[in-house]
């Protein structure tokens, strides 16, 4: 329980928050810029896990230092890490089922399995 935080602690908190914010920014830019569905799916998933994760870590440290340890942030993180991959997974499945147009670089594993087989590498 501290009234004023020491500098190194403030620095740590800031680091995590800025890290989260950066991920969020990059994720948002990615959502805007990436060329097709599958690649675009990458961006927001980073956003929800890493971006929010960073902010939560910052929050956890801050409130842990000022008002005592709180389970809220942990729960948020658990829920998020449980559910975010699932929604991304479902989105990907839906995208595949709908046979959305993909760019040249995004390759469909089902069509040319030999390109991804172990022998090639």
């Amino acid at each position: 329980m501290l009234d004023t935080l020491p500098f190194w602690l403030e620095l740590t908190i800031c680091f995590f928050i800025v890290l989260g914010a950066c991920f969020a920014l990059i994720g948002s830019i990615g959502l805007l810029r990436l060329p097709d569905f599958m690649t675009r799916l990458h961006a927001p998933t980073k956003n929800t896990t890493m971006g929010v994760g960073g902010v939560i870590l910052g929050s956890l440290i801050y409130f842990g230092a000022t008002t005592g340890f709180n389970i809220h942030e942990l729960l948020i993180a658990i829920f998020l890490f449980l559910t975010a991959p699932i929604s991304a997974h479902l989105l990907a499945k839906a995208g595949m089922h709908r046979q959305l147009k993909l760019t040249e670089n995004t390759r469909d594993l089902r069509k040319k399995p030999e390109q991804f087989s172990d022998e090639q590498s």
Binding site: F79, L82, I86, H89
Partner: peptide, 20 residues
């Protein structure tokens, strides 16, 4: 419609989420 009605991953996680 997709032949898999209930994706396994969603099933697993949803059961995990319920008690929470």
């Amino acid at each position: 419609w997709h032949q898999v009605k209930h994706p396994m991953m969603l099933q697993t996680i949803s059961q995990l989420v319920l008690p929470l």
